[in-house]
C-alpha cells in the first residue's frame, strides 16, 4: 500500500492517542533517517505513518548535572551541548551534518546494528528511558531496554518520550571505528566509563556497538577492571574479556572475525585513554 495517511501530532498526548487508535501497524518515525530510505526503496510499504518531529518531545535540559533528552532532540543539538562530552563525541561520529539535523536521540535507540552509536554511549552512561503509553509513563534502564535484534521492552502502545542521563561519574572515552573517517557505519563502537577511588577502579561500564544484536555491556570486562589500578594487565584482561563476550556479526562492513579483534583493540585504546587522562572525573 502506498502511504494513505501520515500523522504529525503536535503533542506527546496526541502522539500516544494516535498510536493507540491506529494500532501496531502504524509506522512510527522520529527523524526519518532510517524509516524514509526503507519507504523510498519500497522495502517498507506502510499504510499509515506517524512522524514525531513536531510532537513536543524535543526538550534538552540539564538536570542535576546530567541531561534530560527529549526523544526527538536532534543529533546536531546533542553534538552542540556541553554538559556530557561523550554524547557530543558520539553525535559527531554519527552520519553527517545534514543527517544529524534530522536524526534523533530516541530514533538512534532503534537504529539497527551497525548503527546505534549514540545508544552505545548512552549505555556506558547508565542512561534510562522513559516510555509513555495510554496508562502513563514508566522508566527502564537502557541496559534492560534492548531484548534482541530490533526488539525492545517497548509495548505496542508506548512511545519512547525521553532519555535521562545521570551526572557523569568517572572518566570516559568514546571511540568509533569505521572504514572511513566520516559518515560511515561502525565496524565497532566502544564507549567506556571508569570510576576510580584513589587509583583503584570501583566501577566501570564497557559498552560495545556493532558487536551484538544491539548495543551491549561487556560485564566480563567490567569484572576484570573493578579492583584493579587500571594498569596494562587489567586493561589487557578487560579487552580480552570484551572480545570474548562480544557477539559480533558479519556484514558488508566487516566480518565477525575482524570485528572481534577490533573490539579487543578499541576497548584497549579507550581504557588507555581513560588511564592516561588521570582521574579525569566527569568529562
Amino acid at each position: 500500500m502506498t502511504v494513505a495517511s501520515y500523522f504529525l501530532p503536535r503533542s506527546p498526548a496526541e502522539a500516544v492517542e494516535i498510536l493507540a487508535a491506529r494500532g501496531p501497524s502504524l509506522m512510527v518515525m522520529s527523524g526519518g533517517t532510517v524509516a524514509m530510505p526503507l519507504v523510498n526503496e519500497g522495502i517498507s510499504l506502510p499504510e499509515e505513518v506517524m512522524g514525531l518531529r513536531f510532537a513536543g518531545l524535543d526538550r534538552l535540559e540539564v538536570v542535576d548535572g546530567g541531561l534530560e533528552i527529549g526523544a526527538t532532540v536532534t543529533l546536531t543539538r546533542l553534538l552542540r551541548q556541553r554538559t556530557v562530552r561523550m554524547l557530543s563525541d558520539a553525535a559527531r561520529s554519527t552520519a553527517s551534518w545534514t543527517v544529524r539535523n534530522l536524526a534523533t536521540v530516541g530514533g538512534n535507540l532503534f537504529t539497527p546494528p551497525p548503527g546505534g552509536d549514540v545508544a552505545t554511549a548512552l549505555l556506558a552512561l547508565d542512561a534510562s528511558v522513559t516510555l509513555t503509553g495510554p496508562a502513563g509513563s514508566r522508566t527502564v534502564p537502557l541496559a534492560d531496554f534492548f531484548t534482541g535484534f530490533m526488539t525492545t521492552v517497548l509495548r505496542d502502545d508506548e512511545l519512547v518520550t525521553s532519555i535521562r542521563v545521570p551526572a557523569v561519574e568517572g572518566g570516559t572515552a568514546y571511540l568509533k571505528f569505521g572504514r572511513k573517517q566520516a559518515n560511515t557505519p561502525s565496524v565497532v563502537t566502544v564507549a567506556v566509563r571508569v570510576v576510580r577511588d584513589g587509583g583503584a577502579v570501583t566501577d566501570a561500564r564497557i559498552a560495545l556497538g556493532a558487536a551484538g544484536p544491539h548495543p551491549i555491556l561487556a560485564d566480563g570486562a567490567r569484572t576484570a577492571l573493578v579492583g584493579s589500578r587500571l594498569d596494562d594487565d587489567a586493561i589487557g584482561a578487560a579487552a580480552d574479556a570484551a572480545a570474548r563476550e562480544s557477539e559480533p556479526f558479519s556484514d558488508g562492513i566487516a566480518s565477525e572475525w575482524y570485528r572481534r579483534r577490533m573490539v579487543r583493540l578499541f576497548v584497549r585504546r579507550a581504557l588507555e585513554q581513560v588511564a592516561s587522562a588521570g582521574a579525569g572525573e566527569g568529562r
Binding site: Y6, L8, G31, G32, T33, M36, P37, N40, G51, R53, F54, T76, W97, T98, V99, N101, L102
Partner: peptide
C-alpha cells in the same frame, strides 16, 4: 537555513 537531505523529509514536515 539548516542543510538537510531533501530525500528524507516528508513534504508535510
Amino acid at each position: 537555513g539548516e542543510p538537510m537531505p531533501s530525500c528524507l523529509l516528508p513534504i508535510e514536515d
